[in-house]
Amino acid sequence: MQTELFPLDDTRLLPDGAKMLRAFGQPYLADIKTALDDVLVQAPTRHMITPGGHKMSVAMTNCGDFGWVSGPSGYAYLDRDPLTGRHWPNMPEVFMALALDAAARAGYPLFTPDACLINLYVPGTRLSLHQDKNERDFDHPIVSVSLGLPATFEIGGLKRSDPVQLVPMRHGDVLVWGGPSRLAFHGVRTIRKGIHPEYGAQRLNLTFRRSQ
């Protein structure tokens, strides 16, 4: 059974290579909302199917040069949206600016994402522990931006059975992990009911990656 560490809001116990940037996204939020609405019109969120044939509870879509997809044949990064056959929407400038600024602040100044995964959670949904390992080069970090309803992020070690820390994530928070924590198991606990003044009864997460 996993041991859980919950140091309230003390993120000093994050694994090496991980950095929490509280409210770092706040100056970008108004422009992000406008840009995100436009992306979602071009590439609506959908519930993808896992290789095992299960429908994912978290809806998702992508923007950028590449997008992460899941299906019966496995996981992959594609340059086109299989739902529309068109290229994924361009990554908005404000998305790129926030990702670059956050990565640099966290100690990864060379990071340039080519993919942004957009996850949409509604109350009652969660994301189980997993590793992000479909990318070609693990020297690049993951930059995760939280929008809307609060969430509890789980981050552990390189084995699924390692202890996890529970990290509160609020609107505008940015979490970056790379280096020795790049392949850390992580997930999101079940989203609780609530209403956010801008995003309503949902949480959205922007996850920036270098896929190629």
Rank of each mutant, 00 (worst) to 15 (best):
T3H: 08
L5Y: 15
F6V: 12
R12K: 13
L14H: 10
D16T: 10
G17H: 10
G17F: 12
A18E: 06
A18T: 08
K19T: 15
R22L: 10
A23W: 06
F24K: 05
F24G: 04
F24C: 05
F24Q: 05
G25K: 04
G25H: 09
L29A: 11
L29W: 11
T34D: 13
L36G: 11
D38Q: 14
D38C: 07
D38T: 14
V39S: 09
V39F: 11
H47R: 04
H47F: 13
H47S: 05
P51E: 05
P51Y: 10
G52S: 13
G53I: 08
G53H: 04
H54L: 10
K55S: 12
S57L: 15
S57W: 06
V58Q: 06
M60T: 06
M60E: 03
M60Y: 06
C63H: 00
G64M: 05
G67Q: 02
V69P: 00
V69R: 05
V69S: 04
G71F: 01
S73G: 05
G74S: 06
A76Y: 14
Y77W: 08
Y77C: 00
R80P: 01
R80T: 15
D81M: 09
L83K: 13
T84F: 09
G85V: 13
R86D: 12
R86S: 13
N90T: 10
M91A: 02
M91C: 07
M91E: 01
P92D: 04
P92A: 08
E93Q: 10
E93C: 07
L98C: 00
A99Q: 02
D101L: 00
A102P: 00
A102S: 03
A103K: 08
A104P: 03
Y108S: 07
Y108W: 04
F111G: 06
T112Y: 12
T112Q: 14
A115T: 15
I118R: 07
N119L: 07
L120Q: 15
L120M: 12
L120I: 09
P123W: 10
P123C: 15
G124I: 06
L127A: 02
L129E: 12
L129D: 14
L129C: 06
K133D: 10
N134C: 10
R136G: 03
R136Y: 07
H140S: 12
S144K: 03
G148M: 07
L149Y: 02
A151I: 03
A151R: 02
T152D: 09
T152E: 08
F153E: 07
F153H: 06
E154P: 00
E154G: 02
E154V: 00
I155A: 01
G156C: 00
G156A: 02
K159F: 00
R160K: 14
S161T: 10
V167S: 02
M169W: 00
V176T: 05
V176H: 02
W177T: 09
G178V: 12
G179V: 10
R182P: 04
L183A: 09
A184M: 01
F185T: 13
R189D: 11
T190H: 12
T190P: 10
I191S: 06
K193F: 09
G194C: 14
I195F: 11
H196R: 12
P197T: 11
L204I: 09
S211I: 04
